[in-house]
Simulated assay, not measured.
Amino acid sequence: MAALGHTFPFYAGPKPTFPMDTTLVVIITIFLTALVTFIIILPGIRGKTRLFWLLRVVTSLFIGAVILAVNFSSKWSVGQVSANTTYKAFSPERISADVGLQIGLGGVNITLTGTPVQQLNETINYNEEFLWHLSKDYAEEYMSALQRGLPDPVLYLAEKLGPNSPCGLHDQYRLAGHYASAMLWVAFLCWLLANVMLSMPVLLYGGHMLLATGIFQLLALFFFSMVTSLTSHCSLRLGAVELHTQHGPAFWTTLATGLLCLLLGLLMAVAHRMQPHRLKAFFNQSLEDPTLEWSAEEGELLTPRYRPMSCSPEPGDIPLSRASSETCSREEHP
């Protein structure tokens, strides 16, 4: 290949990229399937409860889908810049491209798209992911990227976010992602408990679990913001420009959903205190609560009274004598 004029390293063609994260596609598909299923059985519900039921289902599925989606999203901290930078190692040739950096709770995603895409007789369209959560080894994935000969901008940003970089970004983002992900999983469990309790006659506790769902989402934002704010400034220069990052769509979506859960939980607590009957009607529960009627001897110990079988009201096969009948009548009606 060197005899044919190729320049080291020998780049393989860019792999085909799916336009969206497959994990997010699976999550969205599951919740949309559940929504369609509920809509199909919607005509079987009569009256105003149909609208209330649809509103509850849509809101609940939206909250659950957001909690799961942002946990696997790579857009908690994003940055993009248009730069004129080198493309290959050991080559002075430069390209014009859009370089994107997306940092999630479990790793980082780096994109490189040429403007135009066809430059230097190649298709410049890369989307590479480097993970650090669970059993993933970031250093090993970076070495694999070196062996595959990825473009210079991708390797440069991956090295800056590596564990051996003097910037220290790797440890900070990994710690922030660990705690934020843990809070989101707890929020998801609270959401499940809220759905169970709201389907039972314990609406107040369901509202409390909604409050807990919102609180744990806000705690996830707090941990991510606090840890990432402690990172020292590290310059990410691509050619003559510098790449800056800011909070991404996943961060702001989590904030909006957390505030929504807090608002719904507070409204349920207030409605349970001020208008409990309307709250029960909204959740399609019976408005008539069974009441217990106590006798005048409430709280006293009941003393069992026995009577002979001859005094039983059931008709017997053997007729009773007149004296026995009068004895039973006196015992039953003193």
Results as ranks from 00 to 15, higher is better:
183 M>H: 13
7 T>C: 09
86 T>H: 12
333 H>E: 12
187 A>R: 04
207 G>D: 07
310 S>P: 00
296 A>V: 09
121 N>C: 00
148 R>T: 07
167 C>Q: 00
237 R>F: 00
194 A>G: 07
53 W>C: 11
253 T>D: 04
180 A>S: 15
246 Q>E: 14
58 V>C: 10
284 N>S: 15
71 N>G: 13
15 K>Y: 04
84 N>R: 12
300 E>V: 09
228 T>L: 04
230 L>E: 10
27 I>K: 01
295 S>F: 06
45 I>E: 09
223 F>E: 12
55 L>T: 11
308 P>G: 14
29 T>W: 05
321 S>Y: 02
158 A>V: 06
84 N>F: 13
41 I>K: 09
60 S>H: 08
163 P>L: 02
192 L>D: 01
156 Y>K: 11
132 W>Q: 04
179 Y>T: 10
151 P>R: 04
5 G>P: 08
150 L>W: 02
58 V>S: 14
246 Q>Y: 09
129 E>R: 11
302 L>E: 11
236 L>G: 05
226 M>H: 10
23 T>I: 08
283 F>K: 03
221 L>K: 01
326 E>F: 06
255 L>G: 08
61 L>W: 04
301 L>V: 13
280 K>L: 13
117 V>A: 13
238 L>Q: 05
72 F>L: 00
306 Y>M: 11
16 P>T: 05
169 L>F: 07
248 G>M: 02
209 M>N: 09
252 W>A: 02
8 F>V: 14
172 Q>S: 15
172 Q>A: 15
193 L>S: 10
188 F>G: 09
115 T>C: 00
42 L>Y: 02
212 A>G: 06
127 N>F: 07
107 G>N: 06
48 K>N: 14
245 T>P: 01
21 D>R: 07
276 P>G: 07
73 S>C: 02
159 E>K: 10
205 Y>I: 13
98 D>R: 11
176 A>S: 08
273 R>I: 07
94 R>C: 01
180 A>C: 03
250 A>Y: 03
169 L>P: 01
123 T>N: 13
222 F>Y: 11
89 A>V: 07
280 K>A: 14
16 P>E: 11
55 L>A: 15
19 P>M: 04
313 P>M: 08
213 T>A: 09
210 L>K: 08
12 A>D: 13
310 S>H: 09
171 D>H: 06
28 I>T: 12
6 H>M: 12
323 A>Y: 05
215 I>S: 12
273 R>A: 15
171 D>L: 05
107 G>R: 05
226 M>V: 08
106 G>L: 04
158 A>M: 05
121 N>V: 00
